[in-house]
Design a protein around this nucleic acid. Sequence first.
DNA 1: GTGGTCTAGACCACC
DNA 2: GTGGTCTAGACCACG
Lengths: 127, 127, 127, 127
Amino acid sequence: MKKDKKFQIVLDTFSGVPFYKQIIEQIKYGIANKKLTSGFQLPTVRQLAVDLTINSNTVSKAYKELEILGYIETQQGTGTFIGNKKIVISEIERQEKIKSLVREIVNKANLYGITIDEIKKALEEVE
Amino acid sequence: MKKDKKFQIVLDTFSGVPFYKQIIEQIKYGIANKKLTSGFQLPTVRQLAVDLTINSNTVSKAYKELEILGYIETQQGTGTFIGNKKIVISEIERQEKIKSLVREIVNKANLYGITIDEIKKALEEVE
Amino acid sequence: MKKDKKFQIVLDTFSGVPFYKQIIEQIKYGIANKKLTSGFQLPTVRQLAVDLTINSNTVSKAYKELEILGYIETQQGTGTFIGNKKIVISEIERQEKIKSLVREIVNKANLYGITIDEIKKALEEVE
Amino acid sequence: MKKDKKFQIVLDTFSGVPFYKQIIEQIKYGIANKKLTSGFQLPTVRQLAVDLTINSNTVSKAYKELEILGYIETQQGTGTFIGNKKIVISEIERQEKIKSLVREIVNKANLYGITIDEIKKALEEVE
DNA sequence: GTGGTCTAGACCACC
DNA sequence: GTGGTCTAGACCACG
């Protein structure tokens, strides 16, 4: 896995999770990971819509919710910026995330008749 | 991973995938995996609804779609049964599934600041 | 019988045939008769529900089944449209329909003590 | 159409009207038409079920409802008989029936792309 | 008991 | 505005 300096949003079309929620979550985690720091300018609603090839209303909805939550600030005519609000993810939460992700992997693998070994092997190749 | 003889449907409430689609997919994979064979009686609409703690209409909707697609047969007053239609999953499709599952894992790990090594380690412990 | 340019769905409340099946059949015949052609926008789920004074879920169910069968296509947020799939009714099928319709008429007439002559006379007056 | 001396129940599987309702209606009309007169013994529940190849519960349900309505009487161990209650169908009701039947015919013909002439021609041939 | 149909109404995703 | 999902609950047909 190569180091990702630049912040980028990636949508998973098949997960079933609504795009606007994916955007919200990824920006929140970007803040938590310090990839997005106070004052950073987010892409414009229209630009991000084009980049992700989704409707601009969807981006708008995500930004609006993030603003309500206080994570970003919109300045009319200038753009949208990361705010001061901090997000801290505790080690316990991280461990929880790992557990739930693994549980999910095992369930899906099971469902599709995929073995854990196959998953692990495929993961080796990613690196 | 221990061997799972009995067929069981598991819903992921947080995935965002509609319940009825999860049911459809799992039954289809059950047929593909030969865990569900022709003539096998599925749980009743109401029983499955209770088991999954969802509304019976949701189960009904899933069964209905599977019936239209020809995978199951319903007999009013008797129950719902697996039909004759076969589902074959090619090795290519399996490999595709593995790829997409791994892609999903990497994306999520990335998002949450989890390393692949942590995932692999956690997967070891499952076995 | 006057020419019917506009497509319209009519429900028979007393026939005992489920509403959603009547809708499905009429749309299928509309496609077969070329009254509904590829790309045509069907009434919205809610509008048709209002027009037929039935619940929107019932319309939704009909549209859903037609979509699974490939006759119509739905676009979230936009509407529901006739697809490309063709339906051909052979002359043999038409003759079968006539036969079964006549059989039905005779049965009912018989049952209610109505003579075929009365039916024919009443049919003359329709024209 | 040949004269029908004997009373006989005919089920229409495709009408969607439940069997038990068809049975009830036909017996009621039999009484109205004087084809079934007071004291006439109806077939047993089991016999009629066999004749119509339906479940005996269905026949039972029809007879029970007719008994509640007072049209037939059940004598334990002997059989089921037509009661004294008369049913009179007024000429107005008959004319209404004709009208509604014709309306139904026209609707269905319309739907299936059948002309009234074809119906009339087919009706000629029945005689 | 089984599944099937329908309603009323809530909430969501997307344009 | 569009369609989609889900619930709660009623009633029916069939075995």
